[in-house]
Every structure is written in C-alpha cells, then in structure tokens.
C-alpha cells in the first residue's frame, strides 16, 4: 500500500488519472444520494446556460443536466464494471483451459478466438441489441462482453503457456501438488497484475461501446445514461443545432472524455506499479 502510494506520487500523470477515476467512483456511488433527479418538465427553462441553480444548464425540457450526468455516471459505470468482470471471467476461463489442456481442445478454442477477433464486434453488438430486449445493467454488460474476450483469452493462453515451463510450476508438479492448487495458487496470481491493467482498458472500451449503442437509440432502459443524453441531444431534440444548448451537449461528451483520459493515465501508473522492472 505504501509503495503504491509512493509510486503514484512520483508519477503525476498516474496520480491525476487516479484522482479522476476516484472522482467518477464517488460521483457514481455517493452522488445520487446528494442530488435529486428531477424528472419534471419545465419548458420555460429549456436550454439554459450554467448557473448556480443548474451547474451545467438545462436540457430540452428544462431538466437539470448536472443531475442527469451524476445519475448517468452510476448507470454507465455499473455497466462498464460488470462488462469488464464478465469479459475477464470468460477470457481467463477460455484462455486458461486452452493453455492448460493443449491438444485438439486448444486448437478448437483458438479457432473460436480467431473467429471472434475477425468478425467486427460493434455491428454484431448492434444486431444482438436489436434482437433481445436489454432491460437491465447485467444483460447490457453481457451484450458488451460476449464478443470482446478474444484478445484477452489469447493473451492469457500465451502467459499460461510460458508460465507452465517455469521452474516453480515444474517444482509444484514434482512435489505432487493437486492441479487445483497449481492453477489457483501458482498460475492465476501470476497473471493478476496483467488482468488488473486490462480491467481499466476493458472498462474504457465498454463505456465507448455502451454509450455509442445508446446514442443510436438502442437499449433505451435508462433515461439519464450519457448515451441516452447524447441520443436525445443529437437525434431527438435538435439540441445540436441550438447554439444555447451547447452545455447540454458538452456535458456528457466531457464526462466520457474525462473518464477515458483518467483511465489511460492511471493505467500507465498501474503498469509501473505492477511491473517492478519498469520502475526507474
């Protein structure tokens, strides 16, 4: 814990990333308790510029944009975290089986991974989203994860393959330790740092994809999701063409970009933290 703080402090970019992500985390967890989401429509106050009563202005029917961003962050982050967990679970499962089993099972699984990596994922997600009713964060996360684990599975497989040949695994085998012990106590802890770094980048991609899908008007289960806000602003209410509505449009855009940037910055620091060889 102490070393991680020291490394973070020496790397201002990673620290900034950490602060941004922490801010989003707090916003999503505590935010909705502090601020009330007022769904009442008030046409007299539509497209207002930021003021003390509306920190980010108002939307096309006069609702507070700031509150929507806060409630949206909970939505967006829950989906992204769930999607990252699912992606990693599937990726590690398939990659580990493939790397451990070898033989025809390995060949078949890697062929499947090949297919997953070749077939364009975003159009496929759109097709699936249009066929099944996605009504809650869990099914949305599943939709985002189902075609995204290919790269991870391949990387996990090659890590397992190289770990398998190391001395400490050989030693554990010679000692006659059970397979479960070798897998969960020896192999998996060695790939955890890799997974931790990937967790953030998978979350970033899940946010890009989920907001994009919602922006198209699919999966409309939550009205304050950033993607839904963009959909309403761009395709439904014509806010794009209204100069005074610029803050309504910029609010979700800024939120997305800020999160992405925070993720990128923090991942660099995490890289250094998990990989002592990178420390100077």
């Amino acid at each position: 814990m102490k070393t991680s703080w020291r490394i973070l402090r020496r790397n201002p970019r990673a620290l900034l990333g950490f602060v941004i992500l922490l801010g989003f985390g707090l916003m999503a967890t505590i935010g909705p308790y502090l601020i009330k989401l007022d769904e009442d429509q008030n046409f007299a106050e539509r497209f207002q510029a930021p003021s003390l009563s509306h920190l980010m202005g108002t939307d096309y029917v006069g609702r507070d944009v700031f509150a929507q961003i806060i409630y949206g962050s909970r939505d967006v982050l829950i989906v992204a975290v769930l999607a990252a967990i699912l992606t990693i679970l599937i990726g590690v499962f398939i990659g580990a089986i493939s790397g451990l089993a070898g033989g025809p099972l390995d060949t078949t699984l890697m062929m499947l991974v090949n297919v997953i990596l070749t077939v364009p994922s975003f159009p496929l997600m759109l097709i699936i989203a249009s066929m099944f009713k996605v009504t809650n964060p869990i099914s949305y996360a599943l939709l985002l994860a189902i075609w995204s684990w290919g790269g991870l599975a391949r990387a996990v497989r090659s890590q397992i393959l190289s770990l398998k040949k190391r001395e400490f695994i050989e030693a554990a085998r010679v000692l006659g330790l059970p397979a479960g012990h070798i897998i969960f106590r020896q192999l998996l802890p060695n790939i955890t740092p890799y997974l931790a770094i990937n967790f953030i980048s998978i979350m970033r991609h899940a946010i890009t994809a989920s907001v994009g899908i919602m922006m198209l008007g699919l999966v409309p289960y939550s009205s304050s999701n950033w993607g839904m806000m963009l959909n309403l602003a761009v395709f439904q209410s014509g806010a794009v063409y209204t100069p005074s509505a610029i803050f309504y449009l910029l609010a979700p855009i800024t939120a997305i970009c800020l999160f992405q940037l925070g993720g990128i910055f923090f991942a660099h620091g995490l890289d250094e933290l998990m990989n002592p060889r990178l420390r100077s």
Partner: peptide
Amino acid sequence: TDAIPDYV
C-alpha cells in the same frame, strides 16, 4: 484520440 471515441 485514443481517449476520445470517434463519434464524440
């Protein structure tokens, strides 16, 4: 550009 999605 890595941080900003193309649609944004």
